[in-house]
Design a protein around this nucleic acid. Structure first.
Lengths: 231, 231
DNA sequence: ACCTGAACACCGTTCAAGT
DNA sequence: ACCTGAACACCGTTCAAGT
């Protein structure tokens, strides 16, 4: 990873080191690299959302020409794949020492997954269309092992993994997309009421205003786990 | 809805009715309308996928100028919203006569939902980013009523709805995105094995090759329902 | 090995104008 | 009320060229 330099220092070093950075004389940016590109792409996505990521904007932010990116990266799809997988890197404990609470471990793995994605809401809507990168596979691997330890039989393992994956993805995607629009939800509820009578049930229960996403997530997850690995 | 006419008939009527369709003399297409635009957008999405929908291509297919679309439709986002909601129109029985099998009704509602979306795989990856149209609301309403009849208490209704929604969305999105790439999955499994050792658990269980999506869907759904509405 | 600008074939949408 | 073409400000990517 390139270290950050202060503006003053970089200006000086730029003036002095004309021969040291011959191909990069007009800029104070460190050299281009796959890592820098991906990190900057994530920044851009966080700041501007899915549509905000543009090869041209990305190059701008990196202080390089647009076409320079294509040396390090296949195309825009590739950038999406890399950004998504980088955001899903697992940083938690990969093997809690002698844990006895296997069910708690499963919950932790899944909640960490959800939390990671919610930190970058674009990742949720991106995931369904992208390839499985190494970090995603790593999380699936971890989930598989934890489920085995929790007592899920080998024959049921894939069903269990996919059920939980589906649930987590659905919950995360829903939450990420609905949470963006708080007053939209209020507006939606009002619209519901103006159509008075067409949707009486969900109007009465204030479905669109309900926002205990975390609670609902945990509750549904518990039900699933009860079925998958009876305690 | 504009009625379909045969080519011959429309050519004749075009020649005769110069004064009847004065603004549309040069084409044998019926007049533009919101409905036609949406229907054609769905065709285009089915044929070419998400990236295949272009205002220009859409206009081409409709035999009109690009800008004519904007009289009937706000912008491209609007087209996406309309196409998505149109695909989610519920056509099943809205009130089965005196059904006693309430749990079966819930399952039917959710499976019909999933089936509708899988008929148009782009809808799955589109949904998380779009507004709730009338047909989506209608399905939520139906689900809510069915759950009530199945014995879910009012206080638990929203949690139940969102849990099921999340599960169905996750399962559908996953299935729609993974199913597109059959030999990709085989390639992924091979890649796994070439990395031999990094992901032993999911390699051993052939997770990426497992494709009993429907079975997994039903199983997980049953577990959820067991928790939400004990029989 | 790494970076670049010009050029191509596209986009969505504004606007002013037509009937 | 409905449709249109020209024009604008963008896109992603190929290519041939630079160091």
């Amino acid at each position: 990873m390139a270290a950050k330099r202060s503006g003053a220092q970089s200006k000086r070093s730029q003036r002095i080191s004309g021969t040291l950075q011959p191909t990069h004389a007009a800029s104070d940016e460190p050299a281009l690299s796959r890592e820098r590109i991906v990190a900057t792409a994530v920044e851009l996505l966080d700041a501007q959302g899915l549509d905000g990521l543009t090869m041209r904007r990305l190059a701008d932010r990196l202080g390089s020409g647009v076409m320079s990116l294509y040396w390090h990266v296949d195309n825009k799809e590739d950038v999406f794949d890399l950004a998504l997988d980088s955001v899903l890197e697992y940083r938690g404990p990969t093997q809690t020492v002698e844990s006895q609470d296997w069910r708690g471990d499963v919950v932790h793995v899944l909640e960490d997954w959800r939390t990671s994605m919610l930190r970058h809401p674009w990742s949720a809507s991106l995931l369904p269309r992208r390839a499985l990168g190494p970090n995603i596979l790593g999380r699936l691997e971890l989930l598989s092992k934890t489920l085995s330890r929790a007592g899920v039989a080998d024959a049921d393992l894939n069903v269990a993994i996919w059920s939980l994956w589906n649930y987590v993805m659905g919950a995360t995607i829903t939450r990420a997309s609905f949470d963006l629009s708080d007053e939209d939800r209020a507006a939606a509820q009002q619209r519901l009421e103006r159509l008075s009578g067409r949707y009486p049930a969900i109007e009465r229960s204030h479905l669109l205003l309900d926002d205990d996403w975390d609670g609902a997530f945990r509750k549904g997850l518990d039900f699933l786990l009860d079925g998958l690995a009876p305690r």
